[in-house]
Computed example of a mutant assay.
Amino acid sequence: MSANAFPNAVEVRVLRDLYGNDIVLFDEQGESTVHRIVTEFELDAQVYAALQSEALRKEQEVALFKVNVKPGEEPELETIEDDDEWETVSEIVDDRMFPSN
């Protein structure tokens, strides 16, 4: 599949403009993990991000999130619950990480 398969997916810099190339996420126990921002894009007025910790990098995997942006507030990351939405976002991220010629 090529990047043209998702012409509505537009690259954005929401998290990178605030945090640079890395973002620190905290789990339920308050433990922090540094994640590299692999890609960010907007699709149908929703921003998404693919993040990768060192452990995920070793497994060649990424974590996918919705990025909720409210004016005057820091963006919030949300898990993608809908299977079809997750699949679409996953395909876009794959296209961006591994473009076909």
Rank of each mutant, 00 (worst) to 15 (best):
G20F: 08
V34D: 12
D17K: 10
K66W: 03
D84E: 10
R16Y: 03
A45H: 13
R96W: 07
P7L: 08
E87I: 00
E78I: 00
A63I: 00
G20S: 05
P99R: 03
E73F: 04
H35D: 10
N21Q: 14
K66E: 15
K58R: 13
V24M: 15
P75E: 09
N101A: 09
Q52N: 04
E91D: 10
A3N: 12
V69W: 11
G72I: 03
S32C: 03
P75F: 05
L56D: 11
F65R: 12
W86I: 02
S2I: 04
E42L: 03
A5Q: 07
L15F: 11
S90F: 01
V47F: 06
A3K: 12
Q60T: 08
A45Y: 08
P99D: 12
L18R: 15
F6L: 12
A3Y: 03
S90C: 01
V38L: 06
S90N: 11
I37F: 11
D95Q: 10
G72L: 04
E40A: 09
E91P: 00
E85Y: 00
A3Q: 12
D83A: 09
E73Q: 13
S2M: 11
E59M: 08
L56F: 05
R36A: 07
D27P: 04
E87C: 01
E28L: 09
V62Q: 11
K70C: 09
T88W: 00
E78L: 02
S100Y: 04
G30D: 09
D82N: 13
E59S: 11
E85M: 01
Y19A: 14
V10Q: 15
A50F: 01
